[in-house]
Design a protein around this nucleic acid. Structure first.
Lengths: 295, 295
DNA sequence: CGCGGAGTTGAAGCGTTTCAAACGGGGTGG
DNA sequence: CCACCCCGTTTGAAACGCTTCAACTCCGCG
C-alpha cells in the first residue's frame, strides 16, 4: 500500500503518510487506506473537473480511513494537513478547560477539515468521526506540488474555504436562536439541506450524532433537546424515532424556525426596509444558493 | 481621483470602482477615497511584505471610505468584491425574515469581509460600519492580476480566510456559553484580545457597538447585557462607564469566562484525558498563537 | 443476566425574558 | 441658551422557559 502512495508522491520521503501527528499517536483510528483520484477530489469540492485529463489516473491523492469515534484531528496539534471528507460524517468540537465538549459543527461529505493549518497556528478544534469515515489528506507542502499540476485545486480550495466560512455563519444562527424548539427546528432544516447537497433524501434523516452532541452544539441541555423533539413531533412537523427523523411538514417546520427574539419593531425595518417580508425564502436551502434576492 | 485609480489598474475599464453594487445604490456611505500600497495590505493581512520591492509604489490598491452606520455589504448582493478592513470597525449581521438583526461578529483592522464572494454565491451577511472606516477593495477579477504581480497576495488571502474561520469558532464559543455573564466575560476577553492584536490597549476598551448589538451577538436580551455588565463590575472584574470598559482583574475575568455548562463529569475526560487541566492557558490571547501546547 | 450508556419524562428551582419606567446624553429647534 | 425629544442605557418586577436532579425505560454488550 505504501508503494502506491510513494508512487503518487515521488517527491515525498517514503512512507511518510500525511497523518495528523497526535491522532496517529493517541489512537490507531486513522489508517492510510489507499488513494483517490484528483478528479473525485475536485468534484467533492464542488468544482467540476473540467480540463483535467481523465486519462491520467496515475497521480493520486492519499485517502485515510477513520473508524467510528476515531479522532482525526486533535486540538493543539501543529501538523499542517488539510482534510476533505470523502464519506461519513464528523463532529467538530473544542474541549473547554473544564472538560466540557463544545460541539461547533458537524461535517459531511465535501467539507474541509483542519483549515486552520493554512493559518500556521495550532489546530483550533478536535475532529471526531461519528461513523466509519474516509477523508482525503492534503499535506500543505504537498499542496504546492498539487497546485502546480492542477491549478484548479487552488480555486477549489479557496472556494471550499469560503464555503466553510459561509457555513460557520449558518451554524451561528442556529446557536443563538432564542427558543430551544427554534434552535432544533433550524438544526433539522440545516441537516436536511446538507443532506440534499450530497444527494440524500432531505426529508428522511438518520442522525449520526447523539442527543448530547446536538445539545452541545445548540447550547441547551440534552434533556431539552429531547423535549423539543417531542414538541416538534407533537406539532406534527416531525416524526421522531430515536435517531430516525422524518420531516412531515416542511413549511410548518420552516415557520417554526423563523421565530426569533421579539423584533425591535420598526428599528430594524429602517435598515432593512422593504426586504423579503412575506417572502417564503429562508436563509438557506430550498432557495439556497440560487435565490435571486430582489435588490 | 479616478485617474489615480485608473493608473493603478490599467487593465480595468475606466471609472469602474469595485464597489458593492447594492451598497452604492442604497446609501452614499461608501466612497472611493484613494489608494493604498500593496505593502500595507499584506502587512494588514499578517504577512510581512518580504520580497516586495518597496521602491515600487506606483501600483496601488483602491481604498474605500465608509461613514458611520454606512452599509458596506448588503445581504443578497452578488458583486464579487473582497474587502480588508484598514481602519475602524464593522458589525457583520444577518437580517432575519422577521426583521430581527442577528449580529454574527464584529470586524476590526486586518479582517476580511465578503469572503463568500469567492464561493460565487450571493452575499451571506450585511456589513455595517460602526464608525468612520476605510477598507481595501479587491474585486475578484482584479485579484487574478494582483496575484500574478504579487504572489504573496495569494498566500495572504488564504491565511486570512483560514484565520477568519478560526475566529468564527471563537465567536461560536461565546454565543453558546450558558450563563449570560460568562458570555459577556468571554466577549470582553475576545475584544481585548483583538485589541492587542492591532496594538491597542488590551485592558482599556472603548466599545464601538451598542448594548443591543452585543446582546444580539451573544444571544441574550439587551437588558441582560446591561445587568451582566453590572454584575461583572460589582464583582470587581471590570469598571464600566457606558461604552468605556476597563479590565481590572484579568485573571478573575478569565476564570469567570471559563465556567461552562455542568461538565459531563468523566465522560469528557475519557477523550481529552490528561490535557491542559490546571493549565492557565485559555483558548486565545495571553497564550494566543504561540502556545506550544504539549503534544 | 446485569451493567452502562442513550434517551425519555417528571418536578422544582432559578436565570432570563419581557414589559415597564426612569435616567442621562446628544441632537434639534425654539 | 434652554427646552425638548429621541435614543441608548439602566433598573425593577412578574412570568416564562430552561436547567438541574431524579427516576425510569430501552437497548447493546460483556
Amino acid at each position: 500500500m505504501s508503494n502506491v502512495y510513494a508512487s503518487a508522491f515521488p517527491s515525498q520521503k517514503p512512507a511518510t503518510p500525511p497523518t495528523d501527528a497526535s491522532s496517529a499517536q493517541r489512537s490507531a483510528a486513522t489508517l492510510l487506506s489507499g488513494v483517490g483520484s484528483p478528479q473525485e477530489l475536485l468534484q467533492l469540492l464542488g468544482v467540476p473537473a473540467w480540463g483535467l485529463d481523465p486519462a491520467w489516473p496515475a497521480h493520486a491523492v492519499p485517502v485515510m480511513r477513520v473508524q467510528a469515534d476515531g479522532t482525526l484531528l486533535h486540538e493543539g496539534s501543529r501538523s499542517g494537513t488539510l482534510y476533505v471528507v470523502r464519506s461519513g460524517s464528523f463532529k467538530v468540537l473544542r474541549v473547554q478547560e473544564d472538560g466540557y465538549e463544545q460541539v461547533l459543527t458537524f461535517a459531511q461529505q465535501g467539507e474541509l477539515l483542519g483549515c486552520e493549518a493554512l493559518y500556521g497556528g495550532a489546530r483550533q478544534s478536535t475532529v471526531v468521526a461519528l461513523e466509519v469515515t474516509t477523508v482525503y489528506a492534503l499535506a500543505t507542502d504537498e499542496l504546492r506540488g498539487l497546485q502546480q499540476r492542477w491549478p484548479q485545486i487552488e480555486d477549489a480550495l479557496c472556494q471550499g474555504l469560503s464555503r466553510q466560512l459561509a457555513r460557520a455563519s449558518e451554524t451561528a444562527e442556529m446557536m443563538v436562536a432564542v427558543a430551544s424548539e427554534v434552535r432544533l427546528a433550524r438544526f433539522i432544516l440545516w441537516l436536511a439541506a446538507r443532506m440534499t447537497e450530497t444527494g440524500q433524501s432531505g426529508t428522511r434523516l438518520r442522525l449520526r450524532m447523539g442527543r448530547r452532541d446536538i445539545a452541545s452544539m445548540l447550547g441547551v441541555a440534552h434533556e431539552t433537546v429531547s423535549r423539543s423533539f417531542g414538541t416538534l413531533a407533537d406539532a406534527g412537523y416531525l416524526r421522531v424515532d430515536n435517531r430516525d427523523v422524518d420531516i412531515l411538514d416542511l413549511r410548518g417546520l420552516q415557520a417554526r424556525a423563523r421565530n426569533t427574539r421579539a423584533s425591535v419593531g420598526e428599528h430594524a425595518s429602517r435598515l432593512a426596509a422593504p426586504r423579503n417580508y412575506g417572502e417564503p425564502a429562508t436563509s438557506g436551502w430550498w432557495t439556497s444558493a440560487a435565490a435571486p434576492q430582489p435588490s
